[in-house]
Simulated scan of single mutants.
Amino acid sequence: MENISFKRHFAKTVTWRLVGTLDTILLSWVITGNPFTGLKIGASEVITKMILYYFHERIWIHLGVPDSRRRHILKTITWRIIGTFDTILLSWFITGSVQTGLQIGGVEVVTKMILYYFHERAWYRINFGLEKRKRARK
């Protein structure tokens, strides 16, 4: 079994949060028409999403699902459920509109799943924080 370090999970958490926050800011800005609302929503989720993402990574390392495209797809789906729920709640709270929260969350389901999948694939190719790796060719 791979020795996955804290440094690797932390680095993945930070890089994903950068990508995810930029996406949330842009989507929120476009949907609300207000760049400051986009910044508020994006900034507010930085902390909640980093915490949620870190624990998502820690849980997945213990599930025993072998590295493969299937694993990356399953991780994408489970993370998106958690992440979208968080975004909907934060957007609703910040804008005061359930509808706006649902709109932002609904659009982000698509953009974030695509971005997350490619983030996972990129990190699969990076050896940072790993002692040795046997890559599955699936």
Score class of each variant (00 low, 15 high):
residue 2 E to V: 11
residue 3 N to H: 14
residue 4 I to F: 10
residue 6 F to G: 08
residue 11 A to P: 06
residue 12 K to I: 09
residue 17 R to D: 12
residue 18 L to Q: 02
residue 19 V to H: 06
residue 22 L to H: 00
residue 23 D to T: 13
residue 23 D to R: 05
residue 24 T to N: 11
residue 29 W to D: 01
residue 31 I to D: 02
residue 32 T to S: 15
residue 32 T to M: 03
residue 38 G to F: 01
residue 42 G to L: 05
residue 43 A to T: 07
residue 44 S to M: 12
residue 45 E to D: 08
residue 45 E to F: 00
residue 45 E to C: 03
residue 48 T to V: 14
residue 49 K to G: 09
residue 53 Y to Q: 02
residue 54 Y to L: 02
residue 54 Y to C: 00
residue 58 R to L: 15
residue 62 H to P: 00
residue 68 S to F: 03
residue 69 R to M: 12
residue 70 R to F: 15
residue 73 I to P: 01
residue 76 T to M: 13
residue 80 R to Q: 12
residue 83 G to M: 02
residue 85 F to K: 05
residue 85 F to W: 06
residue 86 D to P: 07
residue 93 F to K: 08
residue 93 F to G: 03
residue 93 F to N: 12
residue 94 I to G: 01
residue 95 T to Y: 07
residue 96 G to R: 05
residue 98 V to H: 08
residue 100 T to K: 11
residue 101 G to V: 10
residue 101 G to R: 07
residue 105 G to V: 10
residue 106 G to F: 10
residue 108 E to G: 13
residue 108 E to R: 14
residue 112 K to N: 11
residue 112 K to M: 12
residue 112 K to Q: 11
residue 113 M to P: 12
residue 116 Y to I: 02
residue 117 Y to M: 13
residue 117 Y to I: 10
residue 124 Y to L: 09
residue 128 F to H: 12
residue 130 L to P: 05
residue 131 E to F: 12
residue 131 E to I: 15
residue 138 K to W: 12
